[in-house]
Design a protein around this nucleic acid. Structure first.
Lengths: 223, 223
DNA sequence: GAGAAAGCTGACCAATCGGTCAATCTTGTT
DNA sequence: AACAAGATTGACCGATTGGTCAGCTTTCTC
């Protein structure tokens, strides 16, 4: 029988075990690629991180490049999933708040994934280029039209939607990608939940007030 | 006679020629490191970019690491020079506008430098760490006090100054560091002056309105 | 339980890595 | 002109790189 690709294979089956191992390799590779970049990450370092012999990684992925692109693919899904709240019938302030919150949460919970993505784009997106020009561009077009609709209805001030997205991406991801700089300036061994909360507040303040929306700052940050 | 280190040596002199060559190597290395990262940049690629034999780079810098840190040092000065406009007696809106403009100009004119810096921080700032925790932290402390002064005088709304800086850095540098992504979304072979102007406007809008300051948008963006 | 298929890995490979060095050339000093 | 110091570089080095493969074990199928 043909196994439907969309359906997860039965627990314990061969295909299931393969997916488990592939997922485990990708998970450990995320950290190595994030810390060393593509060029700086060696197959032996990737193998050591996964706790497997180097030849085993080659068995599953063939080449270092294939392993890297497989990792990028697995990260891409996360990147797009946060825009769901931006729909024509949504309240602008609520939708943007949810979007910023989702992006900030992603920086907090998946910092290595964010760094791998950032590293790829930073170096000219050699592997991600076609995706950026395809799916991402289409997504931004779609969501920009939603914002333009809100603007036409007088529900928010006229802003350039794509550049608003660029600003939101930059501000939210900086808490993952440039975490070393933020930690150094704030003099922290690690960013605390409060640091993230303050960052989140700042981003929301700038975005909402910048769009002429009410910024409640309803968060209890304490003191 | 002792040559004063602060004074530039006479044109054509041996020391002058040395500085010229060092500067030329650093200038060409900037692009290689920006595009490939530290690990991905090879000495032979750096040598090819400089149009010199590999052994010549080793003669001037000793190791790849020394060449890289020399480049980082040369970039750091640029990074700090833009905050001059933020002084207690300045007008908040004017000071922040000048700061954002300076940062945006830096992204436009020195994208490779920005990318090298970003890459370093992205990978945990192994070479820049002590500088970030030293000079940069001190600078942010100093400028944060200026902002707190403005806030106390009621000249701007109460915002968390360090996080405001993080937001400004992120938004302005994204036009250099994540240029590949922005280009892809905007469907441009290269970012135009208008793209940068629109980005600059967006950043100013978010920063000024976020701080409760007037955003004039006095720019003639055409159309 | 026999054969096939998939999983696994130690040993090995050519290529490239960062770096060294002796030999040569150029320049400044006297 | 003679010498010293600095500048230059082709040839080379051991180490590490990404990648291969033969041979073994495990698991599935019938």
């Amino acid at each position: 029988m043909m196994q439907n690709e969309a359906e997860p294979p039965a627990t314990g089956s061969r295909a299931w075990q393969r997916r488990q191992r592939v997922a485990h390799i990708l998970a450990s590779a995320e950290r190595i690629f994030a810390e060393a970049g593509f060029g700086g990450a060696s197959m032996s370092a990737l193998a050591a991180a996964a706790g497997l012999p180097k030849a085993n990684l080659h068995y599953y992925f063939g080449t270092k490049e294939a392993l890297y692109t497989a990792l990028l693919d697995s990260i891409l899904d996360l990147w797009l999933s946060a825009t769901d709240s931006i729909r024509p019938e949504s309240d602008p302030a609520e939708a943007l708040t949810a979007y910023v919150r989702a992006k900030m949460a992603w920086s907090r919970t998946r910092p290595y994934a964010s760094k791998v993505f950032a590293n790829e784009v930073l170096h000219g997106a050699p592997y991600l280029g076609s995706y950026l020009a395809g799916e991402l561009r289409a997504l931004v077009r779609e969501k920009s039209r939603v914002l333009e609709g809100w603007i036409a209805e007088g529900r928010m001030e006229p802003v350039d939607p794509p550049h608003l997205f660029f600003a939101i991406w930059a501000m939210t991801q900086t808490y993952a990608d440039f975490e070393a700089q933020i930690r150094a300036v704030l003099d922290r061994p690690e960013l605390t939940a409060q640091d993230h909360a303050r960052g989140s507040d700042m981003v929301l303040r700038l975005v909402l007030k910048g769009c002429g929306l009410r910024f409640g700052a309803a968060e209890g940050l304490g003191e």
